[in-house]
Design a protein around this nucleic acid. Sequence first.
DNA 1: TCCAAAATTATAATAATTACAAATTTATAA
DNA 2: TTATAAATTTGTAATTATTATAATTTTGGA
Lengths: 142, 142
Amino acid sequence: MTSTQIKDLLESKGVRATHQRISVYRAVCEHPVHPCASAIYDALKKDNPALSLATVYNSVEALCGAGLLRRINVDDNESRYDADMSRHGHFKCDRCGKVIDFPVKDDFAQGLSGFAVTRREICFGGLCPDCLAQEQQTKQCN
Amino acid sequence: MTSTQIKDLLESKGVRATHQRISVYRAVCEHPVHPCASAIYDALKKDNPALSLATVYNSVEALCGAGLLRRINVDDNESRYDADMSRHGHFKCDRCGKVIDFPVKDDFAQGLSGFAVTRREICFGGLCPDCLAQEQQTKQCN
DNA sequence: TCCAAAATTATAATAATTACAAATTTATAA
DNA sequence: TTATAAATTTGTAATTATTATAATTTTGGA
């Protein structure tokens, strides 16, 4: 995705497309797992040493408000950000820390007629297949 | 639920049933919405002025580890605790702050074969029916 | 180019949580 | 019951994520 394309996307959503916001958006899109604020900061600091962590927070705030990013709470302590706004869940491996997307069926929630639902988050946790295999191997050695 | 019943429950799960842990567990059970650590602390401080906030954190940690409580992340900043371990989702109203339980269908998650899922959390957000009605009223006045 | 509004920056403040060491309590066994 | 070791609680300090603030810079439009 080119800078121009991102610029147009942000402006179509009514947010000013500053250099920082464009690069924050790109960083979230391109990050292998959904990054937290400081991970975005670290990734962008190389190319823009003047970048401030406060700007990263301001930018994700603006982008979330515009519906371009969503904040996810897979971790107990810090927020991560996801540029994929489609319906899906997140699985956090307690061993390797990876966050993996998974599909979810539509209409699994019940009893919410009369509610205006604007946010949906599905977070699972446990062990991913790789770590599960390694744990079982370790157990055999004991 | 009597103190003796809670004591037996904790011990059956292998956690030492101290006075503090018993009252923390009871506080989470009896709290109208799922309380955060400081809400538990405030609720118990009246009857036990010597209680420390650190103990509340230690207790919920022990109780979560034993599968008696679950930590929920409906808020971006702080954790809340829930004694209902059955499958259900949480809806957080952005206006009044209330957290409301709702039922969810079984087997809505897909693509997780090979994963060992030990944690499941479903958090929705938006406006509850009451607040939605009030917002619509406000809109009409403008 | 000039100007006002908005965004960025650096830093301070806040708030939730964790770490730590001393004091207390608990379960167990003599 | 009393002694003892281990676990827990307590009070406080440290840590960490996030927000607030004010000065500086950038942005978009006249």
